[in-house]
Structure formats: C-alpha cells, structure tokens
Design a binder for these strands. Structure first.
Lengths: 247, 247
DNA sequence: CGCGAGCTTGATGCCGATCAATGCATGTGG
DNA sequence: CCACATGCATTGATCGGCATCAAGCTCGCG
C-alpha cells in the first residue's frame, strides 16, 4: 500500500532538499500563483520524489491508482495498448507536467507511462491532493484547470488525427514541442527529440517511414535542418502556415 | 453575468418540478451514489434547467465559461473548428453526460456544443460546483472521476483515429453508442442515429461517402440492417471482432 | 571492429478521398 | 395534388497519399 510503484526509486533524504517552494518549475506545475503559506502546505503533501530510469515505466495500465506524478526532470511518453499488440502514444510529458490523471476514473491506471530518459518525478498521493484541494481553493482551481487543459489538448489531437495530412501533423507536433520547451526557457528554433521516429509516428497516426520522409521533405524545402534527433527550425512561418492554412 | 447563455431558454418554474433528487438520471449523472442530504444540497446548486432547440448551440468557442451542463434529455455534439473552415466533432453527448468541461482551463469555452435534437440541460454554475465539492467529498470525487473518464475516452478515440481502418472505426463507434444507450435502458440491438453521415465522418476522421459505404458493406455482410438512420445490429459479435482483432 | 538499433530511401499497392451522378424523403408554394 | 426545391444518403469511377515491403545507411557501443 505504498504510493511508490516498483520502478520509482525514492531519492535519498540526504540528497539536496527539493521542495515545491524552491522548485524552479513552480510557475508551470501544480502550484501556479500560490502564496508562501500554500506552498509550504503543498510541501507536506508531496512527501516523495523519485527517479525513473530510461525505458522503465512509472505506472502501467491496470496498476492501482494511488498518486499523480509531476515530472521534475526528464521526459515521458504515455501510451495505450490493444490486446493485439498495436499501441497508440497518447502524449509526451516534460518538466512541470502531470502524469496519471487517467487513473482517477476507475481507481486503476488505463495507460502506461514510460520514461524516455532518466527522469525524476514528484509523487502526489491522490487522497492528499483531494484533501488539500478542499482546504485550498487555489489548489482546487489549478488542479481542475490542469485536467481541463488536458481535455482541450485532446481536442487538438483529434483535429490533427482526424483531418490533417502527414506533413501538417508533423509541423503541428514540432510547433507544440518548441512552444512547450520555450516556456521552460529553451530556444524556440532548435530542439533535441527525446523519442524515436516510430514513437512520433505512433503519436501522430503515421508510420515511421512517413515521419522520416516528412523530415527529409522539410529539410529539402529549407524549413528544417535535421541531423538525427537534432532539429533546427529555419522557417517557423512555413510550419505555422502548414498547420493553419491546411490543404 | 447570467449563467444562462442566449440559446438556453429557462424552463418555466410552473412546469413540472425537476430536481436531482427525483431525476431518473441520478445514477448516471453527477450525483452517483449520493445520500438524500447530498442530493438536496445539489438541488439548491442546480437552480436552472433550460431547453435548447435542435440546431442551436448551447455554447460556442470563445464564450465566457460560467457553468457546466448536464444533458437531461436530447442529444448534443461538440466540435472544434479551424479558421479555414474544417471542423472536427469531438464527441456526442446523451442524457446524463456533462458538457463544457473544456471551459475550465481558460475560463472560456474552446469548442461548440450543438443540439442535434430539441434538448433540455441542467445548468451547473461552476463557482457553486467548486464551492460545494469542497464541502462534499463525494461530489468532489465524482466530478474528478467524470473529468478523468473524459480523458480516458480520448485515449480510446486517439487509438481509433490513429490506427483503425474505416470499418473498424464505424464498428467501434456503433458499439460505443449502443453500450451507452443500453445503460439508459434502451435496446442494445437497435438504435436511431441522431446525427448525419457527415457528422459521424467528422467524428471518425472519415468522409461521409466512406461512412455510407461502410454501412452498406455491413448490411451486405449481414452485420447490420440499415434504413436511413434506423440501425439494427444483427451480428454484435462481428462488430466486436472488428474492433478487437484489428487487421 | 562488428553488431544492432534506429533512420533513410526507393518501389509498389491499397484504402479512402475526391468528383460526380442518382436516389430518396420531406417540405413548400402554385 | 402535383411540381419543384432541398437536404441527406447511396453508389460508381478515378486518383493520390500513405502503408507496406525491402534494401542500405549511420552512429553508438560492447
């Protein structure tokens, strides 16, 4: 009955003390706009931080749901699988983003969360999150906003999967990534992909060959500079156009 | 600053008194498993019921978010649109289901909700929902479950859009519809579609002609009996197989 | 240095989009 | 009551984008 799944190694107490109060992600994560007092209460709730090795799962479909997780460092993917082996990547999560919200509905997780690089997460026991969000309207509000944002995100993904062509999907994907990276202080014109072509494809509803071809096409057209997973965006406008003026 | 958008006509107070306590949907809707006391408090919150005419919108993308809505009777679709005119249906909602959760994230709605037939909704002011769910853990829990369920639903839709072929998509769609209708006391082997072929297509990422052809194919194969929007399911198994043993 | 995972690129084929015509049900006005 | 319009659905013919199959390439690593 611990809130720490098998693959999450607790970070030793003697390591540098990490708290929500001193976390540089606090303006992106759960405690957006919190007072000092609220931050301190949150620190009592997020008792555990843990690390997950690249390739390991934070949780799996079917696991009992006990906590949601905030990514502190690293990068994750979430995926759902069918019995017959196919799977669909449902999202990529980076620092400050929440994982595990799917578990609330049935008290069991319904997707897998896999670390794409060595990562650290903050473990937020759901029972305590419920309790504390009854006391702090700000926390309640922010938590609801995060769930709602996830719903809105899926609307965008549906539009992408339902009506965009391969190049448009990849363009939208890249713009979304850079936008989120930019909010975390990274360049908006260059990025390193943490996932394979196949994982991108499985997210975008395309085969890996198609993803690869699109990258090549973008390079030919002078829109991107692609060197394996190193991507430089040369023509931001062009990507934007592809997404907007569809067709 | 009213919680009642333009297209929602309040139902007269002198009409038959509708309350959560006496609503036959209470075991499907927000107050699942509530005590009588909780039901009565909920009744004070859901002050307004309203009706929406077929074709009218309950809310539109950009509208300020003030309330979520529970469908009492009727049928809705939600959709997101792009500047260039394409749109994507993101869901179909029937009695007992909640609309408007997308609005929490930015305090504005990010999709349109359109009535596919004359409908009635319960207006649940969000501020009061927040307040009351601080007082009633059961309500808080149920509300979170509903949002989480929506997230899980989108995982399924992504799988559908990302990896299924036309017939599989339609099969999954029909099974989902009948399942929900069954939970509401309707037959699981026959249904009347409330939406056009085009609306189905826009939900499933297909063109209306493809949807039509799939219906015809299912009829040829003896799986369905199709007469306009009247659908009889002759071979439930066959549909199930298409969805599971993909390929 | 050689292996293997991941990526690129080419050739071919199929599924579903597109274009187009017709059918069918409902509604409206002469 | 019929003529016509309108919205929705069906069906056919053709086309194109992406999947599939296959071969070779690149880079990191034991």
């Amino acid at each position: 009955m611990t809130a720490t799944p098998r693959n999450v190694k607790p970070i030793k107490a003697d390591s540098l003390k990490i708290t929500c109060s001193n976390c540089n992600l606090r303006e992106l994560c759960l405690p957006v706009g919190f007072s000092n007092q609220e931050l301190q209460r949150l620190d009592t709730m997020v008792a555990t931080r843990g690390s997950v090795r690249r390739g390991d799962t934070l949780f799996r479909s079917g696991d009992p749901f006990e906590a949601v997780y905030a990514v502190r460092t690293g990068f994750f993917k979430t995926r759902v699988s069918t019995d017959d082996g196919r799977d669909q990547v449902t999202g990529f999560q980076m620092a400050g983003e929440l994982l595990g919200l799917d578990g609330i509905s049935t008290d069991r997780h319904s997707c897998d969360a896999v670390a794409l690089e060595d990562s650290q997460v903050c473990v937020i026991p759901y029972a305590q999150l419920e309790q504390l969000s009854r006391e702090f309207p700000d926390l309640q509000r922010q938590f609801h906003k995060i769930m709602s944002r996830e719903i809105v995100r899926y609307h965008g993904v549906m539009l992408l999967l339902g009506s965009m062509r391969a190049e448009e999907r990849l363009a939208a994907f890249l713009l979304n990534l850079t936008q989120r990276l930019q909010a975390r202080g990274f360049s908006q014109s260059s990025l390193v992909l943490r996932m394979t072509r196949e994982e991108i494809g499985t997210y975008l509803g395309l085969k890996l060959e198609t993803v690869s071809r699109c990258f090549s096409k973008f390079q030919e057209d002078g829109v991107l500079l692609v060197k394996q997973r190193q991507i430089h965006i040369l023509d931001h406008e062009a990507l934007q156009k592809l997404v907007n003026e569809n067709c």
